[in-house]
Simulated assay, not measured.
Amino acid sequence: MSGHYDVDAVRKEFPAAERMTYLDSGFQAPLARPVKAAIDLFLREGLETAGPKSVWLDRVEQTRAKVARFLGVSADEIAFTKNTSESMNIAANALRLRAGDNVLMVHGDHPNNAYAFLNLQRKGVEVRFVPMTDVVDAASFRPHIDTNTRAISMSHVTFHAGHRFDIESVGGLCAEKGLHFIVDVMQAIGVVPIDAKAIRASFIGSGSHKGLLVPQGLGLLYWDSAHAELEPAYLAAASLAEIPADLIARPDKLTPAPSARRFELGNFNLPAIHALGASLDLIAQIGVENIQNHCFDLGDHLIAALDALDIRLVGPRERKHRAPHIYVVALPAAEWLGYFEENGVRVSPERDGIRVSFGMFNTSADVDRLIELIRRRGVKTSSKVAEKAA
């Protein structure tokens, strides 16, 4: 049990968590029974009826509405994409940046966020990187803004060390300076509560295979509809305000849809969207704040155990600056990853060690199993917290 919800009951929905110590939701969440059931239903309908297309598309819109409620926005402000990287590229190319403009980003943030904007260098757009520290907020960016700055783009939570940046203060700075704000919430969504309007972003992008529990291949894009001037850099019939009934292209009717559908390119990843509808129902039953608080408790337990072993935590320690669910342990991945795998513990290698990432189904016993394995093997001096002076 947890002080926030019945974790034992939730854990039963994730068979993989019963078969191994799964501490890798920051890479990909294990499949949950309700999510699998939604995919199975889609497959059975396709197998038995060749697909009730109108029913499937109705479910797409039901899921779009669920995503909108989840983020506190209108359904007309939600588009479905392939993944976070596509969402970031859509945003970068919709901003109408020109030669001489610059965009501010955080050095060492997710590379695919950066590449979306670095690709605009061919148009003469400059990308400037501010230093990454444990605390990144409006004050981190303010000194770097000049008359040619047009946007700030950043992650909410970092994948490599679990920083949780103060995106609301950065959004406030962008509003003050008239800048576009683009946020990657891939590592936060489903675990950290997100109020899209409070962030004041022009675009928010994400995938769905981590905290949203859906297999890879589905992304989300929130577009602030107040920015009607932001249009896609591509066009398809599905993107138009008026889709011709005879499907004959007409050069005089190219107005994009008034909704975020302007950023969609035709056929959807239907099974994944149906799965997302089921996962959002599961998350709603538990409550994102409860999931966040449960993961914070697990993180506190992990940090205390690492301190007892004199092992350094990479990244911030304080709750207000750290993600609830992502922790990097200063153990060399080359030396430790195989050992954990051999003993049935799933984690990820990261820049500065081993990443432990929690999901809604994890328990303190999972943390204890990890710590017991570390204690059993012993830790070399080079890996200990004595390094922190370096």
Rank of each mutant, 00 (worst) to 15 (best):
N293M: 08
I273C: 05
E335M: 13
G353V: 06
R377Y: 09
S357A: 14
G287M: 12
L373F: 06
E45H: 06
F296W: 08
G217A: 10
R261D: 02
S153N: 09
E264V: 05
D8T: 14
E48P: 05
Y234F: 15
A68E: 06
I90V: 12
N362E: 06
C295T: 05
A201W: 11
A260K: 15
A196R: 05
L370R: 11
N93F: 08
I326D: 05
A79E: 06
H180Y: 15
M1D: 14
D137C: 06
S202E: 14
R44Y: 01
R376D: 14
T133S: 05
N267G: 03
R317D: 01
I273K: 07
S279W: 10
A196W: 13
H294R: 03
G378T: 05
H321L: 09
A365L: 09
R346Q: 11
A196K: 03
H325I: 00
A334D: 13
N93K: 15
L212T: 06
V191T: 13
R33H: 05
E168P: 03
D101L: 09
R261L: 04
A196V: 04
V345M: 07
D184Y: 14
A323P: 01
N93V: 11
A389K: 11
V347M: 10
M1R: 02
D310L: 00
V328F: 01
R355L: 14
L218W: 05
S225D: 07
R69S: 13
A333N: 07
I354C: 05
F42D: 13
S155Q: 11
I374C: 07
G51F: 06
G172F: 10
E229V: 07
A138M: 08
G51Y: 03
D24G: 12
R142F: 05
S259Y: 00
A323H: 00
V328E: 02
V385T: 13
S357P: 07
L95C: 10
L104A: 09
P215K: 07
D134N: 14
D297T: 13
I167R: 06
L212M: 15
Y5T: 07
A201V: 10
E372S: 11
G124D: 06
E126W: 03
A330C: 09
G266E: 12
V67L: 09
D366N: 14
A237K: 11
L97Y: 00
G338E: 08
L373V: 04
C295N: 15
L221K: 13
P244Y: 02
Q292T: 03
Q285F: 00
V191L: 05
A237L: 12
G100F: 03
S169E: 01
R98I: 04
R369S: 08
G108D: 02
W336I: 00
F340W: 01
V329T: 15
R262W: 00
D166G: 04
A16Q: 12
L221C: 12
A201C: 08
R19F: 02
I354D: 00
I374K: 12
S225I: 11
